[in-house]
């Protein structure tokens, strides 16, 4: 028996919203989904008229839906934004080809400008070359750190005021859980912020912060949006994997759990006397960093010196030597050279 849409009460409902449990028609779902993101943007004052906003586009579902919705809302509500798609090409043969194709198609469909920045261009190394040097076991350190910075560096080249990423509610809830389990209090405090980054770096924001992953898929499905599944091809970090599995179980028991966890994260209050790492900037590249040299620059230094282990462990003591371009001692070199596969 067909059910009527709980919102308009006239159309036939075609889906049950994972977030609220309401049965709604296609049009009402689109409208609710878009309006919710509009509400997020307006209430958190994410943008100012006239800003140039970079959308981190990976060709995956989150960034595809983000690009689409931002384009729609920018026109519907006259945000007055100049939107531009920014994609990163890590230089992994075969891996990016399909997703970059997707991004290029999106660019045409949405009529948004696109800039693809390559690792080669940004760092002088492709991911394939890095894997050759450090082995498969450690490359996730590189791909995480490099990817995080690639978007900023690319955006800086383009003179963008803000970067939007497709992080959704599930990602945020998962990060809250993960940081809590790992005892990372500094990240725990920051991870629910809708906008991050201050001086030096380009502010990043997450307009899909309150959008459920399942609804993003539903939206893409019914809008017939073209996306490519781009999970990191290397194993994710163990804790994140556990946190993700736990979150899925929670959501099955109580769909609001995702929002409930974000609410928890937003209302955690950290004691003032807890030491927080001071946020400074990297003396070499200007990216935010708690150390004199940011993680990416340390990794690069290691690659360039043929000491790939440099960025993997904790080697803060060596930073002054790196900064001063001094050579390392023989013992230090020996420790950093070998890589276990």
């Amino acid at each position: 028996m067909p059910i009527n849409c709980s919102s308009c009460e006239t159309q036939r409902a075609v889906l049950r919203r994972p977030k609220t449990g309401h049965s709604v028609c296609k049009e009402c779902f689109f409208r609710a989904f878009e309006e919710e993101i509009h509400h997020t943007i307006v209430s958190a004052q994410l943008f100012q008229p006239g800003e140039k906003v970079g959308i981190g586009a990976s060709g995956g579902k989150d960034s595809t839906v983000l690009a689409h919705v931002l384009k729609v809302l920018n026109e519907r509500y006259n945000y007055g934004l100049e939107l531009i798609l920014v994609s990163v090409d890590e230089g992994i043969s075969g891996y990016r080809d399909d997703s970059l194709e997707t991004v290029k198609r999106n660019q045409q469909q949405y009529e948004l400008p696109l800039k693809i920045v390559s690792y080669q261009e940004l760092y002088g190394w492709t991911m394939d070359q890095i894997v050759k040097q450090v082995g498969l076991k450690n490359n996730c350190t590189f791909c995480g750190v490099f990817r995080r910075q690639a978007l900023d560096r690319g955006a800086m080249m383009l003179g963008v005021n803000k970067i939007c990423t497709g992080h959704n509610a599930d990602d945020i809830a998962e990060t809250v859980l993960m940081n809590f389990l790992r005892g990372d209090i500094a990240r725990l405090r920051r991870c629910t912020a809708i906008t991050t980054g201050s001086e030096g770096a380009i502010p990043r924001c997450k307009p899909l912060k309150y959008a459920y992953e399942k609804e993003i898929v539903l939206y893409a499905y019914f809008k017939k949006l073209d996306y490519f599944s781009t999970e990191c091809i290397y194993s994710p970090n163990a804790y994140r994997g556990h946190a993700r599995a736990f979150l899925k179980d929670l959501e099955a028991l109580r769909p609001s759990a995702i929002m409930d966890i974000i609410h928890s994260g937003e209302n955690l209050s950290v004691k003032e006397d807890v030491k927080m790492p001071v946020q400074g900037t990297c003396t070499r590249c200007g990216y935010i960093s708690s150390q004199g040299l940011c993680k990416a620059c340390v990794l690069l230094e290691g690659l360039n010196r043929g000491l790939p282990k440099l960025g993997i462990g904790k080697h803060h003591k060596l930073h002054h030597k790196l900064l001063a371009q001094e050579p390392l001692s023989e013992a230090e070199t020996r420790k950093l050279k070998s890589i276990d596969f």
Binding site: E9, R17, H39, D260, H263, E266
Partner: peptide, 25 residues
């Protein structure tokens, strides 16, 4: 009570979702 959050919060976002999915009446 932890419900005196500003409009940019999970609490308000949830209410918004409810409202938008409910009967117009």
């Amino acid at each position: 009570l932890d419900t005196h959050t500003g409009p940019a919060s999970a609490f308000f976002a949830t209410q918004k979702s409810q409202q938008l999915s409910e009967k117009k009446s």
